[in-house]
Amino acid sequence: MTVAAEAGSSTAPAGTTTPPVVPVRHRWRTVAAVAVGVAVVLAVQAAARNHNFQWSVVFKYLVDGRILAGLRTTIVLTAATMAGASALGLVLAVMRQSESRLLSGLSTVYLWLFRGVPLLVQLLIWFNFSALFPRVPFGGPVLASVATNSVISPWVAALLALILNEAAYMAEIIRAGLLSVDRGQHEAAQALGMHRGLALRRIVIPQALRVILPPTGNETINMLKYTTLVSVIGFSDLLYSGQLIYGQTFETIPILITVSIWYLVVVSLLTVAQGALERRINNRYGPARGSRTQRHA
């Protein structure tokens, strides 16, 4: 209340006698805060006292070599997937906007197919690709061929499935970004004699990034979690590395908690990085003329 009184007295001209303003009080918020606090204390107590949690085991495996190797694999897989999916998504987004019916049609069919089939199903299909085509290449003139199973390792199957699926989503994000750039920018580039590819690279994409990057951050965070699906094809990611350990030691829950902690750590780091990135994007190109604190949606 003192704050309100001070604010009132500092803005009001000297000599005014109007009463100070008191904001609405939210009593239920206080009640709710107390209730939540009690619940948290009880939950923490229950977790700490319950020996089934085996916290010592949780912490022991947190820095286990196999878990850390799995963590590294998960991060590399996520990064590789997002890089590949962004590149393919850009191609698909540009194709979608093409004047050529063939190219835009191909892009539409791609999106329909790879967004329509569940990711887990796609993953299993790629992993079992040799059942479809025992040897690659499987069409056209063949000089030499190799057994499909020697090419489609778990790594290749995982990357193929994740990239091809995620590219369909990235294509839509990138397309929205490209569409967000004003037509006048295309025309200005055209009028200067820039060809389409140059205009895209130099003028359109740099501006589209403002729209593309925030949802791409979300996709990256989601992808980190989707990569757990690859454990079904025996790919040694973070989850599968944990599963391999508790398959022998039967410390199932503690190790799953270990794995969860690592996912939370990486997601938290990514979230912080995403926030920093968005602030940087919004503060680019200098402060706007005549505005005090320019904020973009």
């Binding site: 006048g184 200005a188 055209q190 009028a191 004699g193 501006q207 680019r284 190109y285």
Partner: peptide
């Protein structure tokens, strides 16, 4: 594109590259 680069154009909305 080659022909266009010999013709300058100024737009109503300026269309400077903001980045």
């Amino acid at each position: 594109c080659h022909q266009r680069s010999a013709i300058g154009m100024v737009f109503q909305q300026f269309n400077l590259f903001p980045h």
